[in-house]
């Protein structure tokens, strides 16, 4: 399906936002001002954007510990996210959640999640709500190579099939779960077949290629939005940084990341595709990069200068009422 110029610009903008955000965090983190763990999404942009470009604010996503990309793709405000990651009171979640728990429920972004396998059943519930509303909306969850072996994911897949809810299971296989290769921990020779075994149609995609993901998602949404029950999108991808910032990546062959960056980067692939086809000009793309860099720059300075908390804020938002 041919995307319009506006759609292409939007998609590129969204991928660049994620890339610039993550690359900048990689630089900022060693300075010691960011609390806790950071799991960067750089390298995987095509997956989040390939999905979220086809969702609206009525659709839901549930993310993972590696959530920044999903949040940005679903429209979370970048300066507010940065404030959150720095633990500031004006952060998107008041500085109480941090990198691993960024959410904006007003945008259908129902949270990054620190519990591997925590999100998939939650998304089934959101899909029940979508089905009851009957407005064609869907709920999507992201699942990594590692998470794919969590029992909660199997339960969620089965429940989604039993209930025939509009749920898209996005499998985002970056090859690793922490320090372990994805192939080690999955017993099934064919993990895609395993998902089909639940009764879920799977649309496979090349996660290095935005257009491939976009196409797979389009087909999945066609089914799920129209009463066809749950679907899955299965994409191979890679992450450019360690499991968490500071991970020495002893499990990865030297040069592996550099080679992937040079030869199969999803942003470069997008650039090449749209410029060679004459759909967008190099200047259009460069202009977007410049704008986003400025946005990230501004977000980081604002986050560094962000407001600390009044002590009373420790006690707020434990309950809606008590």
């Amino acid at each position: 399906m041919q995307l319009s110029r506006e759609q292409l610009l939007r998609a590129f903008r969204s991928m660049v936002k994620i890339r610039e955000f993550e690359e900048r965090l990689h630089i900022e983190n060693p300075k010691g001002e960011i609390p806790g763990f950071l799991h960067l999404y750089a390298g995987q942009e095509a997956v989040a954007v390939g999905l979220c470009e086809q969702l609206t604010e009525r659709d839901y996503i549930i993310s993972t510990h590696r959530g920044h990309g999903h949040c940005i793709a679903k429209g979370c405000d970048i300066p507010a996210m940065m404030l959150e990651i720095y633990g500031r009171a004006e952060g998107l979640c008041n500085g109480k959640g941090g990198s691993m728990h960024i959410a904006d429920v007003t945008k259908g972004m129902m949270g990054a999640n620190g519990i591997v396998g925590g999100g998939q059943p939650i998304a089934v519930g959101a899909a029940i709500a979508c089905k009851m509303r009957g407005d064609g909306s869907v709920a999507a969850s992201f699942t990594g190579d590692g998470a794919a072996n969590q029992g909660t994911v199997f339960e969620a897949m089965n429940l989604a099939v039993v209930l025939q809810v509009p749920k898209v299971f996005v499998f985002e296989m970056n090859g690793y779960s922490e320090h372990t290769g994805g192939s080690y921990s999955t017993g099934a020779k064919d993990p895609v077949q395993r998902i089909r075994g639940f009764g879920i149609p799977v649309f496979e995609a090349d996660g290095f290629d935005f257009f491939s993901v976009h196409d797979a998602v389009r087909q999945a949404l066609e089914v799920s939005r129209n009463g066809g029950g749950p679907t899955a999108v299965y994409a191979q991808t890679t992450r450019y940084y360690g499991h968490f910032e500071g991970d020495p990546m002893l499990y990865r062959a030297p040069g592996e990341v550099e080679r992937l960056r040079a030869e199969n980067d999803c942003l470069q692939n997008f650039r090449a595709r749209v410029t060679q086809a004459g759909l967008l000009a190099v200047d259009d793309l460069d202009e977007i990069e410049t704008q986003i860099r400025a946005l990230v720059e501004h977000s980081v300075s604002a986050a560094k200068a962000g407001r600390g908390h009044a002590p009373a804020e420790l006690l707020t938002n434990v309950y809606a009422s008590y």
Binding site: E178, H179, T180, G182, Y184, S185, L250, Y251, R252, E256
Partner: peptide, 14 residues
């Protein structure tokens, strides 16, 4: 242990 199924061949990666 970590490292199982990794591409470096280093078994105890963690």
């Amino acid at each position: 242990s970590g490292g199982a199924g990794g591409t470096s061949g280093q078994r105890e990666a963690a």
